[in-house]
């Protein structure tokens, strides 16, 4: 294009023809935004970074008090100790016992609570249930009552049916406490789906479970991912329920981590404590990394439409 055909709007933009991608200019607002994001990231990353550094140092280096310094002689000894031989109270088998306990609690709790939540949400949003709104309101209220309130009554109930201090007991507790939020999540997701889809499946001869399994569940991937992430982090990070209901044999990793860090006898092994802490956080971290993309997508999908 020659300058002879520059139009008035082009001239207004300083002679540059507007074409292609719009240029991004760095304004003061943008700089402020980046500064804020960077400091927020730093706020969360710094402690993690220090933990990681400390866990790689031998005790002599730690005693020098230079917590920001890189390890001079990095070693994985503390990690091995944390995993296999750190003392949790009376036994010294490391945090691995707790890890496997947590896995045994996590898997059935997550599967059951997510599936039940999905089924609940599906029933509430598609099937005419008398008093569905009241039921839903009660369930929602349940989500906001602090669960410490339920602890004692539940302990009594569980011990009277003989599942107190057992794996089944702790799984059941997680399923119960996960139910309100799971139901809420799925109900809102299914309520955003077009109702005619459900109607079409009914005319095509589907019943309650067929429609759920063949039509609704396959469409629920985004919200399933969100639900699984919420439940995995929730169950894995739980402390008080595990401490109360799991029993000595099944204490989850968080409780054992606490035992390691708070063991009173002997010298304090900061590097082992740090390694054990990082190990405990690995599962939720891994879940975020693996499904992060899905997580964001799932939130968006729930907000707009299936």
């Amino acid at each position: 294009m020659t300058s002879a055909v520059v139009t008035s709007t082009d001239r207004a933009r300083g002679g540059i023809t507007a074409r292609g991608r719009r240029p991004r200019r760095l304004t003061a607002g943008r700089i402020g935004l980046y500064a804020f994001l960077a400091s927020a990231a730093l706020f969360f990353l710094l402690p993690a970074w220090i933990m990681l550094l400390t866990s790689l140092k031998p005790m002599e280096e730690i005693r020098q008090g230079t917590i920001f310094a890189l390890p001079l002689a990095p070693t994985l000894e503390a990690w091995a100790a944390a995993w296999g031989s750190a003392c949790t109270g009376l036994t010294c088998e490391g945090i691995s016992v707790g890890f496997w306990n947590s896995v045994r609690i996590l898997v059935p709790s997550v599967i059951l609570s997510v599936l039940l939540g999905a089924l609940n949400g599906y029933a509430l949003s598609f099937w005419p249930v008398r008093g569905a709104n009241v039921l839903f309101a009660i369930l929602l209220a349940g989500a906001f009552v602090p669960y410490q309130v339920f602890l004692y009554p539940l302990v009594r109930m569980f011990s009277s049916v003989g599942i107190y201090n057992s794996l089944a007991g702790i799984v059941l507790v997680h399923v119960i406490f996960g139910m309100p939020i799971m139901t809420l999540l799925f109900r809102n997701f299914y309520a955003s789906l077009p109702r005619e889809l459900f109607n079409a499946a009914r005319v095509d001869g589907g019943g309650f479970f067929t429609i759920f399994l063949r039509v609704m569940l396959p469409m629920s991937t985004p919200i399933l991912v969100v639900a699984v992430i919420l439940q995995v982090t929730g169950v894995w990070n739980d402390f008080i329920l595990g401490l109360t209901f799991a029993g000595r044999e099944n204490l989850p990793m968080t409780v054992q981590l606490n035992n390691i860090v708070n063991s009173t006898h002997g010298v304090r092994l900061y590097n082992v404590d740090m390694a054990a802490t990082v190990l405990t956080g690995v599962v939720p971290l891994a879940i975020y990394f693996v499904t992060g993309r899905w997580f964001v997508r799932g939130i968006a999908a729930g907000a707009v439409k299936g």
């Binding site: 077009p194 005619e196 889809l197 109607n199 079409a200 499946a201 009914r202 005319v203 095509d204 001869g205 589907g206 019943g207 063949r214 039509v215 396959p218 469409m219 299936g306």
Partner: peptide, 28 residues
């Protein structure tokens, strides 16, 4: 509805999004 023996074409199509066209047709 499933006991009434009707077939219906919906105004908004209401196709099953996670099924292929073939599966959509054969679902009923």
């Amino acid at each position: 509805p499933k006991d009434r023996g009707v077939a219906m074409v919906f105004q908004s199509y209401a196709l099953y999004p996670r099924m292929s066209v073939r599966e959509n047709l054969s679902f009923g």
